[in-house]
């Protein structure tokens, strides 16, 4: 087994990814204190203006400033994705660790629960859930969080099982350490690398899925702007203001690109022998 990406490329990918993610974070934080215009300010007379000095990215169908909306959208997008990934980490990692530690039926239970969650693609379960509980950011977080939990449980379990088979764990068990203590002292630290990498990937997936749900009108609710809803609104104005369909998509794509670059770079850095399955 050899490293597939040239050594010199690894830092570059990580740097590029980190730079994009940093930019996203910076824009989101900046939007808390400053945006060119209030993002929710409606001015119907100034609608669908092309980019100009006054409105860098133009205005939308209600005359709102697109640049400002994108900035606040970054914040909303990050908040939902962070919450969804956080929920996934909080539920998934302990479940995965427990499955690996318990073996047999506990393991089986976690695997079947995972099957059940995976049987519904994330977007579908989110559509169902928002139908049941109503549209909105919180319910999107719950739906995406459950999906993330299933992914993280599976990934953590796999990594943890590999650790359990290793000599030093057997040695620790032979010394009379209990499964809980082995899990916390030996297994958890050795699975963190995989979890961190998976987290960046899931973060990217959460951003895309949130945008897809907001596009369908089920995610973040107006007047607070979201990239997905901006795309949905832009689609009805494709003939008059085609650029409106470009900017929010670009924002989504650059965020995802940053996160995947970061994730891939971290993966190669943490685990050079990792088989990049390309999944997720």
């Amino acid at each position: 087994m050899t490293r597939r990406i040239p050594v010199s490329a690894v830092p570059a990918a990580v740097w590029a990814g980190a730079a994009l993610v940093g930019l996203l974070l910076a824009v989101a934080l900046l939007s808390l204190v400053w945006t060119p215009y209030p993002a929710e300010q409606v001015r119907v007379v100034a609608r669908l203006r092309p980019p100009s000095a006054a409105h860098w990215l133009g205005t939308d169908h209600f005359g709102r400033d697109v640049a400002s909306m994108l900035m606040v959208g970054a914040r909303n997008s990050l908040a939902v994705a962070a919450a969804a990934v956080g929920l996934g980490l909080g539920l998934g990692v302990p479940l995965g660790l427990a499955a690996a530690a318990l073996g047999r039926w506990g393991d089986e239970l976690v695997a079947r629960l995972g099957d059940l969650v995976f049987a519904f693609p994330a977007v579908l379960s989110a559509i169902l859930l928002t139908a049941a509980l109503g549209a909105g950011a919180v319910n999107v977080v719950v739906a995406l969080g459950l999906f993330n939990a299933a992914v993280l449980a599976r990934v953590t379990r796999g990594a943890a099982l590999a650790v359990w088979r290793r000599e030093f764990v057997r040695a620790a068990l032979a010394l009379g350490r209990g499964p809980l203590s082995v899990t916390l002292v030996h297994v958890l630290p050795n699975t963190l690398g995989v979890v961190v990498v998976q987290t960046t990937v899931l973060f990217a997936v959460a951003i895309v899925n949130e945008a897809a749900l907001s596009y369908l009108g089920l995610g973040i609710q107006p007047p607070s702007p979201s990239w997905g809803k901006m795309l949905g609104d832009a689609q009805t104005h494709l003939f008059n203001a085609p650029l409106q369909a470009v900017f929010p998509g670009l924002a989504i794509a650059l965020s995802v690109l940053g996160l995947t670059l970061l994730g891939d770079g971290l993966r190669d850095w943490l685990d050079p022998r990792h088989r990049s399955s390309g999944l997720l």
Binding site: A131, G134, A135, G136, G217, Q221, P222, P223
Partner: peptide, 10 residues
């Protein structure tokens, strides 16, 4: 006013 979009059924 908090905007709450819903489906027809709801």
């Amino acid at each position: 006013a908090a905007v709450e979009p819903v489906e027809w059924a709801a």
